[in-house]
C-alpha cells in the first residue's frame, strides 16, 4: 500500500531530511513512525501526501508511483489519503458538520449522501451531538476527533496522522489511538507519526524508527 524504495529527500539549502529509506506497508497494516523531532517523521508523511517530492528514489502509494503524478492530479491522489494534523486544521467559521462534510463536497457527493456519511463519521468519533457546534466551542480532544472524522468521512484506504496526540493528556491519547485501531480493523492502512514511546509500545503494532533521516529500526516484517 505504501512502498518507499531508497528514498532521499534533500531540502533546498542542502539539508538531508531522509536518506535511503526503504520500507513497505501492506494493505490493512498499522504502523507507528517514531524518532526525535527533526528525525524526518513529518517529511516522510509529507512525501506520501505529496506535500513534498522525493529528491531520489521512489514512493509508491496504492500502486501509483508518485514521481509520475502531475500537479493537476495531486488533488485526486490526496482524496485517497486521510490526513490528521497535530493542530487539527479545522475551519473555524464553519460548524462541525460543515468541517467534516468538506471532503465529500469537494468530491461531489449528493446532499443526501453527505448527510448520511457525515453523521456516520461523527458517530464513530462520538461527536454526533456536536454537529451544529463551532470548533472554538470544543475541547482539544474533541477538535482532534472532528479532524479524524473529516479524515475518514470519504473512506480513504490510507490514514496518516502527524503527532495526533501531541497536545492531549494520556487518557485522551489512548482513546484516540484506540480509534485508529478501529479503523485499521476495517481494513484501513494506518501510519502514525508519534514520539509517545510509552503509548506506542503499549499498543503493540509495527514501529518504524527514524534517526537523522535514516530508518534505523523496523520492528515488524514485510
Amino acid at each position: 500500500m505504501i512502498r518507499f524504495s531508497n528514498v532521499n529527500k534533500r531540502y533546498t539549502g542542502g539539508y538531508d531530511a531522509l536518506v535511503g529509506v526503504n520500507f513497505h506497508l501492506a494493505p490493512g497494516e498499522m504502523a507507528f513512525l517514531t524518532g526525535h523531532s527533526g528525525a524526518g517523521k513529518s517529511t516522510l508523511l509529507k512525501l506520501i501526501a505529496l506535500l513534498e517530492r522525493a529528491s531520489r528514489g521512489q514512493v509508491v502509494i496504492n500502486g501509483q508511483n508518485l514521481d509520475k503524478v502531475s500537479r493537476r492530479r495531486i488533488p485526486y491522489i490526496r482524496r485517497n489519503i486521510g490526513i490528521i494534523f497535530q493542530d487539527h486544521r479545522l475551519l473555524f467559521d464553519r460548524t462541525v458538520f460543515d468541517n467534516v462534510a468538506l471532503p465529500l463536497i469537494i468530491s461531489g457527493f449528493s446532499s443526501n449522501e453527505v448527510g448520511r456519511r457525515v453523521r456516520a463519521a461523527l458517530d464513530k468519533v462520538n461527536l454526533l451531538r456536536k454537529e451544529k457546534s463551532y470548533p472554538v466551542m470544543l475541547s482539544g480532544g474533541e477538535q482532534q476527533r472532528v479532524g479524524i472524522a473529516r479524515a475518514i468521512v470519504n473512506k480513504p484506504p490510507i490514514l496518516l496522522a502527524d503527532e495526533p496526540t501531541g497536545n492531549l493528556d494520556p487518557e485522551l491519547s489512548e482513546e484516540i489511538m484506540k480509534l485508529f485501531e478501529q479503523f485499521n480493523q476495517v481494513g484501513v492502512t494506518v501510519l502514525i507519526a508519534s514520539h509517545d514511546l510509552a503509548l506506542i509500545s503499549q499498543m503493540g503494532h509495527r514501529v518504524l524508527t527514524l534517526t537523522k533521516g535514516k530508518l534505523t529500526q523496523d520492528s515488524g516484517a514485510s
Binding site: 491522489i77 490526496r78 490526513i83 475551519l91 468538506l102 469537494i106
Partner: peptide, 16 residues
C-alpha cells in the same frame, strides 16, 4: 489562506 491550504490538503482541485 488557511482555508485554501486545508482544502488543498484534503484534495480540493484548483477549480474548486
Amino acid at each position: 489562506r488557511d482555508e485554501i491550504i486545508i482544502i488543498k490538503l484534503i484534495g480540493g482541485t484548483d477549480a474548486f
